[in-house]
Write a protein that binds this DNA or RNA. Structure first.
Length: 555
RNA sequence: GCCUCUGUGGUGAAAUGGAUAUCACAACGGUCUUCGGAACCGUUAUUCUGGGUUCGAAUCCUGGCAGGGGCACCA
């Protein structure tokens, strides 16, 4: 809004000087002392107009119309035009935040769009490790971002109830007598089956045979299979609860398989797929990717076959405009190939399927692999963080200590994932990388809890918040109005970290202010300072929600 | 080998082509707790390398170096 006002005003000033410019960009200077908005048109146009950029800037400023929202305009450096907004503007924003409350920060970028977000994708019979934690954290945040930006949003999970990994686990259970009721045993059985598959030719053939029997639903296997499947799925549900994720749809590979297989047959007829060395492949090389197998020489299907059928399965449930698939970056080229094959078979899906790759959790000790069995499970990490949080909590003040500690622990993990851009790897050091101090999830939660307790105190003392201007604009007043545009950018780029870093700036500005000022100081300024504190709390709370982090009232 | 992503203080990160590169951790020094110290204030220290584009480059182009990931029946 204010952005448009200023842009328009600059446009008019340029016209007055006799210059037309189509692209006027306003940015927030990094340094708040450089103003609230900064414009670089003068420097952009100076050369073309054959003028000195600083003089041009001065002339533009002379022709700007005055409004109540702008306090002053300055020319600085090589020709920046800096706009300082007025106290009336900032006071009005605080009032606006208090009114909008839970809606504060939302935008209309994706109004009317139907978006399905698929994430987490753990596989039954295999451990839920910290990589899944990462996918879940990013997926949940992206879901909330698009939802807050107006999209009709559905959360989907896609799980491998069939496939070679199941055969490996069941084979391991059969050989070594592991217990299918135990999550731990399933993980070990899988790692064992995988190891033998790689090094023992007989075992490999047995597992392939077993795989066929599973797909055919051989009744001798179904008891163990069902027990193992439910053990895994129930375990996953417990974790989703802690992570505050509720899926609208659960898709299984068993469902997408027949659809995918039919598409492969169709593609083989039309020449999109080829036969090669007894297998059916998609010659991705012809499209700048690489070739992948969609049906093996043993007659079994691959993950590719199943992923090929998935978009149609999704569409049947929810007629999406956009289907987002979130996985680790190691699968990037894999999805390039599968989506290419899919779009050749279904041209009307053009532009509707998006793959967002996220970085990998890297251990100091090397690559984590559930096949090798050297994984850190999501559960153990959450518990470790929770224990750490419990130690820090003051015993007397907190009622639901256990619940709060869990929320703090989860916040620490989620923050460390969401503070950096999505594509980057996280080098995971258990000792150091998850902190409760400084740049952290608990820091944001703590700041909010601190404000809530001030609001409580004000209530008992009968002090009411009141919006009226004071002399001097604080840093938090300058930062808070930026929240909606931060959210919009994060949603547009599918980058939650913009929200994370913004919230950290806000919390830091608040704590700094808090250190210098007493809010409930008994003066007539207290009601407005209280209103500002409340506005910070609303922003933190809504922002934390976007990150999928809970905001406990006491911690 | 080919494709692709990444390289920012001692460490982990941020920066729609903008001004003096921003945070946090660690280290060192301070606030001494009256609204919650999981906090605040201060000090030290950073854009892999050569060239190019631009009024202006951590960012764009190009050569090199280093690392991650992918490249046929795993997911």
């Amino acid at each position: 809004m204010i952005r448009e006002t200023i842009t328009h005003s600059i446009q008019e000033a340029l016209n007055a000087v006799g210059i037309t410019a189509e692209n006027i960009v306003l940015e927030h200077p990094v340094d708040l002392s450089h103003g609230d908005f900064s414009c670089n048109v003068a420097m952009m146009l100076a050369k073309k107009e054959g003028r000195n950029s600083k003089e041009l800037a001065e002339e533009i400023v002379k022709n700007l119309k005055e409004t109540s929202e702008i306090q002053k305009v300055e020319v600085a450096g090589p020709g920046f035009i800096n706009f300082f907004l007025s106290q009336e503007f900032f006071t009005g924003q605080i009032e606006n935040i208090l009114e909008e409350e839970s809606k504060w920060g939302s935008n209309e970028l994706l109004n009317g769009k139907k978006i399905m977000v698929e994430y987490t994708q753990p596989n039954p019979f295999k451990p839920f490790h910290i990589g899944h934690l990462m996918s879940n954290t990013i997926g949940e945040s992206i879901s909330r971002l698009v939802e807050f930006s107006g999209a009709e949003t559905r959360r989907a999970n896609y799980q491998g109830d069939i496939g070679l990994h199941v055969a490996k686990a069941l084979w391991g259970i059969g050989k070594e007598g592991f217990d299918a009721r135990s999550v731990g045993d399933l993980g070990i059985a899988y790692a064992y089956g995988h190891e033998k598959y790689e090094e023992d030719e007989n075992a490999k053939l047995e597992i392939i045979e077993l795989n066929k029997r599973i797909v055919a639903k051989d009744s001798d296997l179904m008891d163990t299979y069902t027990i193992g499947l439910n053990t895994s799925l129930n375990h996953f549900e417990e974790i989703y609860k802690v992570l505050d994720t509720k899926f609208d749809y659960y898709f299984f590979e068993g469902q997408s398989l027949p659809i995918g297989l039919e598409m492969v047959e169709k593609g083989l007829e039309s020449g999109i797929f080829r036969e090669s060395e007894g297998a059916v492949v998609f010659p991705g090389e012809e499209y700048g990717f690489h070739t992948r197998v969609f049906k093996t020489q043993y007659g079994t299907t691959t993950y590719e076959t199943r992923d090929l059928g998935l978009p149609l399965l999704k569409q049947k449930e929810f007629n999406f405009d956009t289907s987002i698939t979130i996985t680790a970056v190691e699968q990037k080229t894999y999805f390039d190939v599968v989506f290419k094959a899919f779009s050749l078979l279904n041209p009307d899906f053009k532009g509707k399927l998006i793959h967002i790759p996220h970085g990998m959790m890297q251990l100091a000790s090397g690559k984590m692999s559930s096949r090798k069995g050297n994984v850190i499970t999501g559960e153990s990490l959450i518990n470790e963080m929770k224990t750490g949080a419990l130690k820090k909590m003051k015993s007397s003040e907190v009622e639901n200590k256990d619940e709060a500690a869990e929320q703090v622990g989860v916040a620490a993990i989620k923050y460390s994932v969401l503070k950096q851009s999505t594509g980057k790897n996280i080098s995971f050091d258990e000792e150091q990388s998850l902190s409760f101090e400084g740049d952290s999830g608990p820091y944001l939660q703590y700041t909010n809890a601190r404000i809530l307790s001030i609001l409580d105190k004000a209530k008992t003392e009968g002090i009411k918040e009141e919006v009226r201007k004071l002399s001097g604009v604080t840093e938090i007043e300058k930062l808070l109005p930026r929240f909606p545009e931060v959210v919009e950018r994060a949603a547009r780029e599918y980058e939650p970290h913009y929200v994370t870093t913004y919230l950290t700036d806000v919390a830091s500005a608040f704590n700094s202010w808090y250190g210098q000022t007493k809010i409930l100081d008994g003066t007539d300024e207290a009601p407005y300072k209280l209103a500002c504190a409340h506005a910070v709390s609303i922003t933190l709370k809504n922002g934390l929600w976007l990150l999928g982090i809970k905001a406990p009232e006491r911690m």
